[in-house]
Design a protein around this nucleic acid. Structure first.
Lengths: 246, 246
DNA sequence: CGCTATCGTAACATCGTGTAACAAGAGTGC
DNA sequence: GCACTCTTGTTACACGATGTTACGATAGCG
């Protein structure tokens, strides 16, 4: 494999530089970032194999950033933080972090844990390096992220609405992983900023949305092959996704 | 979704039992093992999604075991150990462990880290994780684990509900072994959350469920051949089961 | 033979999901 | 402004899956 490209996000310049130098000395390509905007820029423009994300970033919050990214991407994330209490660690794991390292840390141990995560990631060849790719194939279907169009196996073509596109994106980012309605809603609301009205007593919006997407991409919406229901839990995209360059 | 199957290896029986109970209460299938031989048996005979491997195992050594297994298999391994020095942790990561947790640990944190590793692993379609498409044969009957369909000897075919499927799976896993209602309920409730007050006198859910399954798979539900009642005990699946990969 | 614990199951209650129908914007062309 | 279309959330109803209850049947036992 090529040299792993790591993104180091920390608002403390000294810390950032130290980590980057150390990682580079140990054979990695390490790049700096300071904000969510910077992260997104890197994710869009270049391959990132793993992120080392500080939790306390001035007015931003690493945990929140991690949560938002998880809804869209599958990039491995190791949270780094001076907050080492159990509930703080658990919050990190809950939003999808792959590991959580407390500051101050032994550099050698950081290295070992980075390698452990990369080792695991490298074994999922089709999904490891998802980034700004535009084309997905699954079961003869093709999704063109640029035009938001889905092409059916027989050449028929459907157009998805914005919300349907968002749902499909979330699903593509999490194949085989059951997602609750709350998780789906949270991932979709990333684009629309904060909106804490997640009280889900009457909220059937996700169900309806799923139904609409099914009616467009499933051969038989009554007996869905791809977008399946996990009763009492939520929905799963139970199909292997193969990704290609646009 | 398939329930993750964890293997807990610890030579301290009390610790082992505690971990297994806790994991089971949190929706996992947890199985015990004590030695490398026991581990290999489990890996050969059944699917194991993750191993929690104690480092100090009497005269055996978890790190060594991890190293040997890594050379052969890709099963995710979390090392658990009272040895928490940095060099000991690093030794664990170096032999291919996915994580290293120091004893004593916060059970909730263990849970979070188990989930983090499984999350990462589950995105790899190549792993043994989804080898749940088994075929079973018994007395001319066939059970297709993928479609949840049961084919009768005469070619007739029935579809099982989720709960019925779960019951059949439990039975197929324990042929000729009488199971109490509590055992069946526990095996089925792994997906649901806690609420261990299921052993009520009024709880006839299992009986009804058995009846419904009988009405679907028994030729004469009034005189069941396969799913028999063990009066005062529970139910037995009194038929030889042949298992095959799909 | 009767007693009692246990089991089978029909009938009902409850819950989660699918979806049609409606309503409320948002955008567009005139 | 107005009419039209497209999108999206809400509501209501239907339906299937599953748990609960009640009552009759039955096995085991004295």
């Amino acid at each position: 494999m090529t040299i792993p490209r790591l993104l180091v996000i920390d608002d403390d310049a000294e810390m950032r530089t130290m980590m980057i130098q150390f990682l580079q000395q140990n054979g990695f390509c390490a790049l700096p970032a300071q904000s969510e905007a910077g992260i997104r820029k890197h994710l869009q423009t270049g391959r990132i194999d793993l992120m080392l994300l500080d939790v306390m970033l001035g007015d931003e919050n690493g945990v929140k950033i991690c949560q938002r990214l998880r809804g869209e991407q599958d990039v491995p994330i190791i949270l780094v933080s001076a907050l080492s209490a159990d509930h703080q660690r658990m919050a990190g794991y809950e939003v999808g972090a792959d590991d959580y390292i407390a500051k101050p840390f032994n550099p050698q141990l950081l290295l070992a844990r980075v390698r452990a995560v990369l080792r695991r990631v490298r074994r999922s060849p089709s999904l490891a390096y998802r980034r700004n790719t535009k084309l997905f194939h699954f079961r003869g279907w093709t999704y063109d992220g640029k035009k938001d169009e889905v092409h059916a196996p027989d050449g028929f073509q459907v157009t998805l609405s914005r919300r349907e596109t968002g749902l499909l994106r979330v699903l593509l980012a999490n194949p085989h992983i059951p997602l609750t309605r709350e998780e789906i809603a949270a991932a979709l609301d990333v684009t629309q900023e904060q909106d804490a009205t997640h009280s889900d007593t009457t909220g059937r919006a996700i169900d309806v949305l799923v139904g609409r997407l099914r009616s467009k991409i499933e051969r038989d919406p009554k007996d869905p092959e791809m977008l399946r229901t996990e009763r009492g839990v939520g929905y799963v995209f139970g199909v292997d996704v193969i990704e290609a360059e646009a």
